[in-house]
Design a protein around this nucleic acid. Sequence first.
DNA 1: CTAATTCACTTGCATATTGCAAGTAATATC
DNA 2: GATATTACTTGCAATATGCAAGTGAATTAG
Lengths: 138, 138
Amino acid sequence: MKVVKQRSTCPISTSLDVLGDRWTLLILRDMVFAGKSTYGEFLQSAEKIATNVLADRLAVLESQGLITKAVASDKKSKFIYRLTEKGVDTIPIIVALIQWGIKHCPTDVNPDLLEELQAGKEAVVEKYQRLAREKALV
Amino acid sequence: MKVVKQRSTCPISTSLDVLGDRWTLLILRDMVFAGKSTYGEFLQSAEKIATNVLADRLAVLESQGLITKAVASDKKSKFIYRLTEKGVDTIPIIVALIQWGIKHCPTDVNPDLLEELQAGKEAVVEKYQRLAREKALV
DNA sequence: CTAATTCACTTGCATATTGCAAGTAATATC
DNA sequence: GATATTACTTGCAATATGCAAGTGAATTAG
């Protein structure tokens, strides 16, 4: 049970106590936008997270109730990580980060996602929240 | 000139390269929601940022173009930090963090802000962006 | 049935970042 | 001229991260 140190009772601060590092939101991104769900898949991402850091962040996310961990139905040696509602609720944060990144940093974005975003952020949030909830039921 | 190491060209990743730590968004919060603009004011916050970390984050925010630094009009020994448009554009991220924190963590929130948020997130974002832009013109 | 492989980690260690306390330097006030 | 304010910097211990290698259970290949 990983403990998270709370610095104050400000909602921004408490959110950052859990999400405020370089890796946590990238793991959630991989779950939401890349459909990833296993340790091995998370290791494949372009940013190259270290194995010990990934294990630590997954343990924090699980103990904080953003994800669940379950044995895969096909293999007993494999674990499937799934988003909880608390995890699904981070999608507006992730989408806000995408918009800021697109506007202010040199980035490569999936053209389909870019088009969806131009039609409105709310629709994008709702779409990926719906997809994430469907995936969580499997 | 502080350099920020870019891990990939994903917009979420590039955003987190600048904003993804425990302190940066709290400084921006203080500017946006508490009207703070000086080193001494940032040090006063409940989370107790260390002086060297604050100096470092202000230098990063300035070199990345989210804030500007100027000598105060009343005292030459005082500096005023102000948000740029790039800084103002982080407000949707901060508001998304507030909403997640309120919903999922034990927090204390300003009742006025809570009421504003219940009436809709977009209005809150627009209000504080307008206020921040006005402040930047002083 | 045994050996190699996959999968999910853990361990050890060098480097980087953070936290804490104290010190410095340029104004500004008394 | 002495004290205070403002914005830092410095030194050092504690913590976190990055990297390479190792472990162990479950699965597949021969």
